[in-house]
Simulated assay, not measured.
Amino acid sequence: MSTTTSAAPQTRSGDGKITYTPVDGRLLDVEDLHVEFHTEDGVAKAINGVSFHLDQGESLAILGESGSGKSVTAQAIMGILDMPPAKIPEGAIKYCGLDLLTMPDDQRRWVRGAEIAMIFQDALSSLNPVFPVGWQIAEMFRQHRGMNKSDSLAQAVRLMERVSIPAAKDRVKAYPHQFSGGMRQRIMIAMAIALDPAVLIADEPTTALDVTVQAQIMALLQELQQERQMGLILITHDLGVVADVADRIAVMYAGRLVETANVYDLYAKPAHPYTRGLLESIPRLDQKGQTLAAIGGLPPNLLRIPPGCAFNPRCRMAQDICRTDRPELREVAPGRKSACHFAEEVLDA
């Protein structure tokens, strides 16, 4: 992976706020990121040397089961990990060439929300139940842009209309519990895009929504991403959700990336047994009435990650080398990487 060069912040004309310029179209570089959680039982290594990049206008999906490190990666980028117990002993997270991990706190706070925003998976618990939704959206403009109450509320109505909330002018004073799950998620999206961020992170944005609403939310995210040329990081465990949205996919397991590829190549021919297992577990119309394939076993305990390849206890292709030597993420085809000793065999299977 190529690394970014240094970049200097620039001043926005008119409002005096700081903005940042991508380096050769590169918005975000995560380089050899490690995250640990220090607990009474020991050190849980949640992220073990993860590296990836995000370009301007690109959609990157990060996939994996619960506990693979997807959300922890997003929280590290946003700077919202509880430290302690979390600790980042190694790595860099560069936004437009500037390392967020060494950035002064006041500058990092500006980046969070104004430049990099996040949609959380549980809208009901993420929204404040005692304030109207319009007030919560408007707060973004009051805090970051210095707008007065009436102007910020007008912006809130505009955003609610943009994310297709019916009768936004009438519902701007409604409370979170008065909206359906899909409408609450639209409100979260409105809050996230309020300040026109360059990077939007969506952490399991369709959790607990029915299939029809899931499709509507994903279509809205894709539309906004293309309209605003944002870089979009979509975190999910569901390969079916990202098929029409992602440009590239990064698959995580036990805190490491095990495969990266563009969406078409990965769906057509996975290069890692774990990715193949995830694909085989997706229901298909041409397999009606057949038993779904499942990946046997459970993800490893992060306090005791097995030696060698962490996936080896569950892998049908595992051999002796898989139990002793940890495979590095390496290029196995143009634009494709896999952390498997037998990636070529998986591709040809």
Rank of each mutant, 00 (worst) to 15 (best):
T39L: 12
L279T: 12
D122G: 01
E204P: 08
S180L: 09
R284Q: 15
V258E: 03
H144G: 06
S51W: 03
E204R: 03
P22L: 05
E31W: 05
Q107D: 10
G67N: 06
M103N: 08
I321M: 04
L292W: 05
D29F: 00
L28P: 07
L63E: 07
A168D: 07
V50G: 00
V43M: 05
I119W: 14
M118I: 15
M103G: 09
V111P: 00
D203G: 09
A74T: 04
D41R: 08
T21Q: 14
Q121Y: 14
V133N: 02
P104S: 14
A293K: 10
Y264P: 01
L60T: 06
L101I: 08
V346S: 00
A310M: 01
G49Q: 06
R336L: 06
F120I: 01
D82F: 04
A74F: 08
M1I: 10
L195H: 06
L302V: 14
E259T: 11
I165W: 00
Q229S: 14
W110R: 09
A46M: 11
A168K: 14
Q287K: 15
Q136R: 14
G16D: 12
V157L: 12
K149V: 12
I119N: 10
E344G: 06
M147I: 08
G146N: 10
D32F: 07
R336I: 04
I62L: 14
E259I: 02
A192S: 05
N128G: 04
T39A: 08
P132F: 06
E259W: 09
P85S: 08
D247C: 10
P299Q: 05
I201R: 01
W110Q: 15
T73K: 02
E344I: 06
L234D: 09
R314S: 07
N312S: 15
Y95K: 03
P104K: 12
S68Q: 10
A246E: 01
L54A: 03
W110G: 02
I119F: 11
R158A: 13
T4V: 13
L278C: 03
H53G: 15
N128D: 15
P270E: 05
R108V: 05
E161I: 01
G49E: 08
A114L: 07
M183A: 04
A243S: 13
L98N: 13
T73P: 00
P176H: 12
T207C: 03
Q229P: 09
K288E: 13
N312H: 14
A271L: 03
R314V: 12
E40Y: 07
L127F: 10
A294R: 15
D196T: 04
L239C: 04
R26W: 11
R112D: 02
A8C: 09
E344F: 04
P300M: 02
E259P: 03
S66Y: 05
Q226Y: 13
T291H: 14
P132G: 13
N128L: 07
Q10W: 11
F311S: 01
S13V: 08
